[in-house]
Computed example of a mutant assay.
Amino acid sequence: MKKNLMFLGLAALGLASCNGGYKKGDNGMLYNIYTDKSGPKIKEGDFVLTNLVIKNDADSVLLSTYDQGRPTPLILPKPQFKGDVFDAIKLLAEGDSASIKVAADSVFKRAPKPPTFKGKYLIYDLKIVKLIPKGTQTDQVFHDNITKYMTGLATADKNAEPAKIKNYIAENKLTVNKTDSGLYYVITKPGVGPLIAKGDTAVINYTGKLLSGKVFDSSIKEVAVKAKLGSLDQRPYTPIRVAVGERKVIPGWDQGLLLLNKGAKATLVIPSSLAYGAAGAGPIAPYTPITFEVEVVDVVHPKPGAVAAPVKK
């Protein structure tokens, strides 16, 4: 899945105009280099960290690393076909930025075409953030250098997280409460009845966002459609059931739901330590704080004397 997105992303970056300002490369590929730094050009097998926007020639964005909050790391592979985006990347050096247009028909001979895709070209807007040439380094030294660099980025992200949360709260004018664990929350609509307790099942509608405002998941179809989330027809858009306190969801949810009751709505601002941590998940990069808007549709209490079913091994 990620490889397909990256392949599509690198094939779709560029401008929506036809050939204005573009030079013609192999196999009909078009490119326009905006920033041309001196330095070694990227070669197959080099490590590249790239900010990337992928779109069609109607300017409909398919993927953006800016929304995700982290550039994409890549060891440049061999071109999939003559004149593909990987070929075009070899025209660039560290610090360069460019737009690349690749014929959609060439790309989709080798990768599934998204059912909603329209247009003649895939367009890639690229910014080369970092280049680590393979050169004559052994594989071990090369990968050690990549690991050292990426670890430094992760440490910087971790250290920057408190400021990101503080800025988000200020920019959105949220009057938040904070738990001892570091969870921030705002109850936007009070509920009724007792608070949810461990062992209860909470029935929840939710929308998850990055602090940039980019929606990455929602149980509400209208929100998912507006955010152009993938797999729209492959899931039911109904409230989900969460067994609270059983570690089946991220800690920020387990803790935040205990603060709510039936009918309550809240905004949870969750640091990465209570979300996806150092590993990240899908579009959520390592050490990324996230926010959820949640609504407690119902609370189901366990029946008195009920015994939990044994776990099958």
Rank of each mutant, 00 (worst) to 15 (best):
I100N: 01
K113L: 06
P115Q: 08
P112N: 07
T116W: 13
L126Y: 10
K113P: 00
I123H: 00
R110L: 15
K101C: 14
I100M: 14
I123D: 09
D139Q: 08
A111F: 13
I123L: 14
T138I: 07
P114T: 09
I132P: 05
P112T: 02
D125R: 05
S106T: 05
I100T: 11
K130G: 00
K130N: 01
F108V: 01
A111W: 07
G135Q: 12
I128N: 13
F117G: 06
K113R: 15
K134T: 05
A104H: 06
V102L: 05
L122W: 03
Y124R: 11
P115M: 07
L126D: 09
A103T: 02
K120F: 04
R110S: 10
G119F: 11
K134P: 00
L131E: 05
K113Y: 06
A111N: 04
T138A: 14
K109L: 12
Q140A: 15
R110V: 08
K120C: 07
A98D: 05
T116L: 07
I132K: 08
K118H: 13
I123K: 03
D125K: 11
S97A: 12
F117C: 07
L126G: 11
A98K: 01
S106G: 02
I123F: 00
L131N: 13
L131I: 08
L131Y: 08
L122K: 03
K120P: 00
K127F: 11
K101R: 13
K127Q: 10
K109T: 06
K101A: 13
D139W: 05
F108E: 02
